[in-house]
Amino acid sequence: MTALLLRDLRLAFRAGGGFGLGLAFFLIVTVLVPFAVGPQSALLSTIAPGVLWLGALLACLLSLDRLLALDWEDGSLDLLATAPLPLESVVTIKALAHWITTGLPLVLAAPFLGVLLNLAPPGFLWLVVSLLVGTPALSVVGTFGAALTVGLKRGGLLLSLLVLPLYVPTLIFGAEVARRGAVGMETATPLLFLGGITAACIALLPFASAAVLRVNLR
């Protein structure tokens, strides 16, 4: 399992493209928002938590179609399926690798982009906390979507259509934590919901992902 994780990480860092792309996309979305809505700092400060969450979510989505497609094309997915490691573990590792290469950088970059959007000072901590708790769910759900569409030639657009509705609960609670944190309200309730959703996704969805991957590899 460690070997697979290291292999995926190495591929993501070295093979060019995958790694920095999500981060760059996140930056660009955040920079474009003031152009679209105007530079008033009060307005930006109100929408900052939501915009940052949405940007992180879209950046996460961007890298999903490469998650399994490359391994599918060169046949290493077939090897992994016949390996002694259960396919459930394989997809979990894949999701973990995706989170480390996409989710974690987004979490770390978010506070700096928060400065650009004039995020209220108490909001920084809660933005990072909510992203830290929420983004693993995005990776796991995304792995499910990637497993569903892996065999398709033009799966990218379909992948977004399938995955985005599944992101709704995470987005609602995650953005709610960040918003409440920014205005100084208590954040425990949505944070617990967010954590519960993430935990349930990590616990259950790998089985669904492995099941659909088996169908696709049949």
Binding site: F144, L148, L162, P165, L166, V168, P169, I172, F173, F193, I197, L205, A208, A211, V212, V215
Partner: peptide, 18 residues
């Protein structure tokens, strides 16, 4: 079919989340 099962859970979740 798998999408329908997973989607049902998430649709229900979204229902209460909103």
């Amino acid at each position: 079919s798998v999408l329908c099962l997973v989607g049902s859970v998430f649709a229900l979740l979204s229902r209460y989340a909103v």
